[in-house]
Simulated scan of single mutants.
Amino acid sequence: MFETLTAPKPDAIIALMQAFAADTRAGKIDLGVGVYRDEEGRTPVMAAVKAAEARILAEQDSKSYLSLAGDAGFLQAMETLLLGGAAPSARVAAVGTPGGSAAVRQICELIRKTRPESVIWVSAQTWPNHLPLITAAGLQARPYRYLAPEGGLDQPGLFADLEQAAAGDVVLLHGCCHNPSGVDLAPQDWAELGALLARRGAVPFVDMAYQGFGAGLDADAGGLRHLAARLPEVLVAASCSKNFGLYRERVGIAMAIVSAAQRDTLAAVLAGLNRQNFAFPPDHGARVVSTILGDVALRHQWLTELDAMRARVQANRRALAEALRAETGSDRFAGVAAEQGMFSLLPLSHDEVQRLRAEHGVYVLDDGRANMAGLSARNIAACARAIASVTR
């Protein structure tokens, strides 16, 4: 039965994690894996999460199944967090999923079920799992330009490419801090995109995992809310891994904003897709999120912790940019300080990336993507020296 199987190509991020773990050198620096790390290099459990878990442990009296859509309190709390009332609840259908990746896959399954001929437009700089999730669902993907060669958003290229989208096509957009380049769409870009999508009859599909890592919860959701308030159909995949630190709990939501007349049908279809794939979504992490968002004190504690995480990553950006300017005597890496979120796409060649690993034990992905949360006061100077050394 399995004689013809061949091993899949290793996932780039997983392969980098394994290479870092196998490296025995002291002072090695991991800027690859996409998790938040504190100054000590740890990925801590947030205090608000621990408090919510203690409350759940004391109060929860059953582990029985919930609905195929997941906990209604979680879905409502996430709708408020993401949309902030930009679209009425009567237009929102949603289901819980095992993390953001499963949310993307479920939305792809929804597209295949309703319009399998749709082309899914994906930014040229995206995550390694986006294209496999799309193609595994039997859908066609097509790239659009995103990052300019000199850095920053390639706005003319992006809009020129998406002007080719046909009615019924789907455009996968990165929410705040989500593009691995660290370059976000500005509010005006979101406004122009909304107008373009309305004119072309294409449907936006927003992938959101870093709300709160940019300018704040509401500002970070501004682009999504603009689309939700103005377009007839919007698809959303969101994760709580990053902003709640619930990586291993796999907390996600798949959402469709449609007409009120279609809402119940979409909710039933999404629940049916859950049944076909994994049946009931996991509840523990989702219950942690709804407990935090539903309690004034816990929500305040969570926001305070999230603000501190955001401030630390931004400080790391500024410190690395300054150290690189001092080491290289140029502004080649100045864009790092202006970008948002945990990631930057460093302007490094494949050979320079390989030398960083081999000669200095600094691990970034082959395309130069680096996790700014992996930096600390102890290693920023060494990291800058290493980058300067391989770029001379």
Rank of each mutant, 00 (worst) to 15 (best):
S118G: 12
A137K: 04
S118Y: 02
W121P: 03
A124D: 14
V122I: 08
P116S: 13
P132S: 13
S118F: 01
I134T: 08
L133G: 05
E109Y: 06
P132C: 07
P116V: 09
L110K: 01
A141P: 13
V119D: 07
G138N: 10
W127T: 14
I111V: 15
L139V: 03
I134F: 08
A124G: 06
V119N: 01
A137R: 11
V122M: 04
K113Y: 12
P132I: 05
R112E: 14
T135E: 15
W127N: 04
L110F: 14
G138E: 13
R112C: 02
E109V: 01
R115I: 02
I120S: 05
I120M: 12
E109Q: 15
A137C: 13
W121D: 03
E117P: 00
V119W: 04
Q125F: 13
K113F: 12
Q125G: 02
K113S: 15
V119K: 08
P132A: 10
R142S: 07
S123C: 03
G138R: 09
A141R: 04
P128C: 09
A141M: 14
W127L: 14
R115A: 14
N129P: 02
L139F: 13
A136R: 11
A137N: 07
I134R: 04
A124F: 01
R142D: 03
N129R: 12
P116I: 04
R112N: 12
A141F: 12
V122N: 00
I120C: 09
K113D: 14
I134H: 07
I134C: 08
I134A: 05
R115G: 05
P132G: 06
T114A: 07
G138C: 11
P132Q: 04
E109P: 00
S118Q: 04
Q140M: 06
G138H: 07
T114L: 11
I111K: 01
L133I: 13
H130D: 14
E117F: 03
G138D: 07
E117H: 07
